[in-house]
Design a protein around this nucleic acid. Sequence first.
DNA 1: GCGCTTTAATAACGCGCGTTACTTCCGTGT
DNA 2: ACACGGAAGTAACGCGCGTTATTAAAGCGC
Lengths: 332, 332
Amino acid sequence: MTMSDVARHAGVSRTTVSFVLNDKPGAAIPEETRRRILEAIDELGYRPNAGARALAANRSGWFGLITEIVTGPFATEVITGAQSRAWGDRRFLLIAASEGDPAQEAAALDQMLEHRVEGLLYATTWHRAVTLPKAAREVPTVLVNCYDAEGELPCILPDEVSGGYKATRRLLDAGHTRIGFINLDPAIPAAIGRREGYERALREAGITPDPSLVVPGWATADSAYTAACELLDRPAGDRPTALFCGNDRMAMGAYDAIKERGLRIPHDVAVVGFDNQELIAAYLRPKLTTLALPFEAMGTKGIDMLAALAAGQPLDTRQVTIDCPLLERSSV
Amino acid sequence: MTMSDVARHAGVSRTTVSFVLNDKPGAAIPEETRRRILEAIDELGYRPNAGARALAANRSGWFGLITEIVTGPFATEVITGAQSRAWGDRRFLLIAASEGDPAQEAAALDQMLEHRVEGLLYATTWHRAVTLPKAAREVPTVLVNCYDAEGELPCILPDEVSGGYKATRRLLDAGHTRIGFINLDPAIPAAIGRREGYERALREAGITPDPSLVVPGWATADSAYTAACELLDRPAGDRPTALFCGNDRMAMGAYDAIKERGLRIPHDVAVVGFDNQELIAAYLRPKLTTLALPFEAMGTKGIDMLAALAAGQPLDTRQVTIDCPLLERSSV
DNA sequence: GCGCTTTAATAACGCGCGTTACTTCCGTGT
DNA sequence: ACACGGAAGTAACGCGCGTTATTAAAGCGC
């Protein structure tokens, strides 16, 4: 089933069929002819060949998305966002996983370039600096949830500072004044930014941040359990009445420490998480109030930026930050 | 950068370059010429155009994967499995989400067919019957985690019966004889199969299944909490010493009910889950022993079957079931 | 009737590549 | 001297389509 078949069946030339299919502006096609062609298409069950079309038009319609792990709650949100947005532009997304292996990453990139992607999204599971293979410069590239170590490529990042601020502010608004912060590895951008927001919110409320209330965890429930025990076992009066946790898994560990002591959430101790991992946050008892990393929004924004770049438009900002929304549940 | 450029640069014809690139059998290419060509490719940074190649060879190299939700822990495992397996065959996966909307599903299918996919994988998030649009018959199609309501398309399903059997067997082996079963909606295939396995294991151990020990939950932690309370509040001696839960979220609810009563896991009550949702199973305290749905394996198997179908080979079995592995952690 | 513009449609080229059929060159055997 | 076979390489076609000239017909004013 090719366009020629349709043309023959409708008694016109292939060119005319092409004009109709593409709504070619400037082409004068009487209604009667157009109808005959559409009918023929329908009767024959003709489907345009996307590959041939791309070749002739020199426009693949592809965007590429490379990420470390396709599995995992974060990457999938980016994919969802990017996918749906790309779809709206009648584009397709080529998805590949590097599995954290530079060789696979290079292979994926090669494949993308061989498929003539018009733009590339590169997403990581956690906020950090990256260095891309040189080949990535051959095509417009946007980084998602990471930034170029060489500072050249445009990137989209979550607003960690505002996230930390909002979490703390929510607890302050609920009347808490001693707020423990079980942070992530203090060396990573997420931990640095959130702590900055945390301290700013405290100062705005006239509270001097107490460094001993900030303890590092290592992203696991167990480490957070230990950290929470340390905070909760302080002498009464000095004990925090609220815990802000670096992620939801850590909040899970904090829950255990709190419950173990016969304390109640949120009555005795309020908890705020981070990441909004649905499986945890929505099923913990009580449900966890947490901040969402805007992965889906970052994905859609990424496609927007790529579309602009691919169309030759310059970017207004090289670095975009996106807000982390606060999701109210029942732990505050 | 096209093959012609490479040919010119190497002082040979385009045909020769093509022969070298494709290792054409029967083509006599002296080592010296081959070297010159590869050098030229390298110097010019030439990349074959996958689209043009597909057009000429009439072989797209694409497989399609349609699923309800790209986000979500299950679909991503299928994608991972299918993706990695497809990659091994030097094929690419086209992924689309239907979002449960028939219109989007049809649109996705259209796009896939326009891109001339050589095979189609259709995956659902839960085991059930489906009916595909007629267009899906235009290309080899394999169902994953679902089966054709009309019984025509080949499918890959998890072995629910063996899963239920293994869970129960594990608890029997640990010495439990009164095993409560908080099942899923009793009308769905997963619930039916697992119950069958549960009862078979009991009978094999010489125990007559007690129907009052099987209570339905509705897939949520809350409903399982209620169900667990009902089972645990039976008079001592009649109370089950182990709970087999229809999924990990339900196990989460059961944990709460158990802990609330001052009972200890696994000392007083053992728990086995189902689904192996990493975020829950690996972070509950104690870690949850559970059965994994073999999504990744189903994905790879799906690509295998598609590859066979696309190559024109007949399938040996129209319905394949894949085992659910038991993951030992600390709740038994 | 003749020029001119607009409408309707087409022939023909090229996109980058796989593939077939064909040519040229060289060494060998008789 | 000639036919012959293999090695090395190429011209040319076609894949399905977008696009640009170009043509043919129709409408219009005089």
